[in-house]
Design a binder for these strands. Sequence first.
DNA 1: GACCTGACGTACT
DNA 2: GAGTACGCCAGGT
Length: 98
Amino acid sequence: MDEVLHDRIRDAILDVPPGRVTTYGDIAALTGAPSPRMVGALLSEDGHDLPWHRVLRANGTPAPHLAHEQLTRLRAEGVLAKGQRVDLGEYRWRPSED
DNA sequence: GACCTGACGTACT
DNA sequence: GAGTACGCCAGGT
């Protein structure tokens, strides 16, 4: 994994403000990552100190094995989910609106 | 180098 | 809206 890209992905995730969410695809597009999977891979190995709970899949649902923890953290920030699905139209963060 | 795996996305049914 | 199929790229074996 390219280290510059690595840092850009981390920075992009750190930019997401509390109470908002983004998607793996958005982070990939924003940072130039070749695939959204790379974003997930990075979080998997080096995401412990990042607000990883603000990163969702494109349909607004979290990864299955993290769903409970992720939705709990998001709820604490004011992001409400309908079942397992967060309303991206409501909470999705865009860099331009920062 | 082939094959498998994964915190994903899009298209299609 | 939900499920399936396939493409995608990097890492490990």
